[in-house]
Amino acid sequence: MRLTVLGGCGAWPTATQACSGYLVEYAGFRLLVDPGYATFPRLLLHTTADAVDAVLVSHGHPDHCADLNPLLRARGLSDSPPPALPVFAPHGAVDAVLALDKPTGDTGPSDDIPRLAEGADLFLSEATYVHRVPSATDAPYLLTARLAGRYARQAGIARLLLTHLWPGTDPSEAVKAAAEAFVRPVGVATADLVIGL
């Protein structure tokens, strides 16, 4: 049996330490215990989301269960979702975490977007997909990098920064798609990027 500590901070994570979270492995079985704030990225350093076999939550404080949400999203939104994940928790302990996902979108196409961004020095735009939203159900609620570029051109902004890219998206492909319509500087939001305005 092996225990891997994903974090041990109480209450909230720090810049260098996730909250409570532990990966227990035995005979090929992976049990995630208390996936608190910021533990999911740490988990991904050791295994994939679909390789987790079960989750145990000791209680409902978010520093012990908040990252159950990104784990479930990574599994459920993958191209080949794995089987349902058994989650063991006290009654009601993870209700708030499970209620986070509602059928709402991030931006969605709208003629109001260029008007709202008009003349901005920097347009920070959602660009979940590169060229098209693959699901007709999601199309009214998400933008593409290509459409963000078109909106940036229409708004006459100085710079475009794409954000909210789907995990695994090649940032250079998103920039290229936006640049089809927008000839000014285009970038992608990444951790620790600083832009003077």
Rank of each mutant, 00 (worst) to 15 (best):
R30P: 04
P62V: 04
D34E: 14
T128A: 03
A117S: 09
A51Y: 14
L45V: 04
P82Q: 01
S78Y: 11
V87A: 02
A89G: 10
V57S: 01
P41K: 12
P90T: 00
D63R: 05
S80V: 07
P90R: 02
S110A: 13
P114N: 10
L98H: 04
E118V: 13
F88T: 10
R115D: 10
L72C: 10
A89P: 15
L68D: 04
S135G: 13
T128L: 06
P134A: 05
P86H: 10
T107C: 09
D53H: 08
L98A: 07
A136G: 07
L56Y: 02
G36A: 05
L71F: 00
D101C: 06
P81E: 12
P81G: 04
P35W: 02
A136N: 08
D111W: 08
D111H: 13
H46Y: 09
V55P: 00
D111V: 09
D101F: 07
V55W: 07
Y37L: 09
F40V: 01
V57H: 00
V55D: 02
R73V: 11
V130L: 11
A127Y: 02
P82G: 02
H64Q: 12
D112W: 11
R75H: 03
F29N: 07
D67A: 03
V130S: 14
A49C: 11
P90M: 03
F40Y: 07
G36S: 06
F88Y: 15
A96G: 00
A49Q: 14
A38D: 13
A38S: 12
D101R: 02
D112I: 14
L116V: 12
P41F: 06
H131K: 10
R73D: 15
D67E: 05
T107E: 10
V97I: 15
L124H: 01
P82S: 12
S135M: 14
V133L: 00
S58R: 13
T107S: 11
R115E: 07
L43S: 14
S125W: 04
P35N: 00
T107V: 12
R75Q: 01
P70C: 03
V97G: 02
F29L: 15
G108L: 13
K102P: 15
A54T: 07
L43C: 05
L45C: 15
P134E: 14
V33E: 11
R132P: 00
S80W: 07
T39W: 04
